[in-house]
Design a protein around this nucleic acid. Structure first.
Lengths: 124, 124
DNA sequence: ACTTGACTTGGAGTTTACTCTAAGGTGTAT
DNA sequence: ATACACCTTAGAGTAAACTCCAAGTCAAGT
């Protein structure tokens, strides 16, 4: 799979994928004889993880750390698990804040709906 | 309430609050005769909204737009409601991605827990 | 009155995560 | 073999959201 195809699949720009590889968010991608990236299933799995985690706000640095540990082999199972647990905790925290904001927005929107009928905006 | 006190309350830096005011994320804050910020209840409400929305990833630009509309008065109820609805939709979308990431993390973590017992890491 | 610490402004600097540019190589269809 | 689109790298540039700095002002305590 070419870089373009992978980008289309995950809605990324080629520059982003090259950047991910360069800084180590994903391991080195398989290449053709001529040096052109040819993403294998394994490579695509890594892209998928990266995209999924980035979409949940996991910082680049954390993903780089994970790939680093992965490359060090089986000695790092625990370290990797801990890293994932930390990422998990962060996402749970962020999600709580999203819920708070949603509640607040729902209340405000309902007040505006009312105000659009009565002409008067009131709180609480 | 001084800028420092408000910052302590919401875990912000004074520079952040001044920045919010400067770019219009919150309206102008009440000042003492000497020109020093003295946050009133009303001012603090705005800070609270800003923090809450920022924590949910609502961009600065959107908050600025909201304050702009607010300043224009009662003609903008609908526009404000629409803005809030858009913010809401974005947060809902982002939250979905957080849920996906959490599922994925839970699966991975469980696999690592297993691997730490068996010594072998396997997927699916 | 004077020290001390917190406040003010305008503007420059930083961080994170891309995103673009220039100069050149690859590969496939005519 | 010659376009042509697409690929490569190194390195520079950008956007968003702060964050810091310098130079000066304000206010509370002694």
């Amino acid at each position: 799979m070419t870089i373009k195809e992978v980008c289309e699949k995950y809605n990324l720009k080629p520059d982003t994928l090259r950047y991910y590889e360069r800084v180590g968010v994903i391991p080195e991608v398989t290449r053709t004889g001529g040096g052109i990236r040819d993403y294998q299933e394994e490579d695509i799995k890594w892209v998928e993880i990266a995209v999924c985690m980035r979409d949940a706000g996991v910082p680049i640095e954390m993903l780089i750390e994970y790939v680093k540990l992965f490359k060090q082999g089986d000695e790092t199972f625990e370290a990797r698990a801990n890293l994932l647990k930390e990422a998990r905790a962060r996402i749970v925290e962020a999600r709580k804040k999203y819920d708070t904001a949603l509640e607040r927005l729902d209340y405000k929107i309902s007040r505006y709906e009312l105000a659009m009928k009565t002409g008067v905006l009131t709180w609480e």
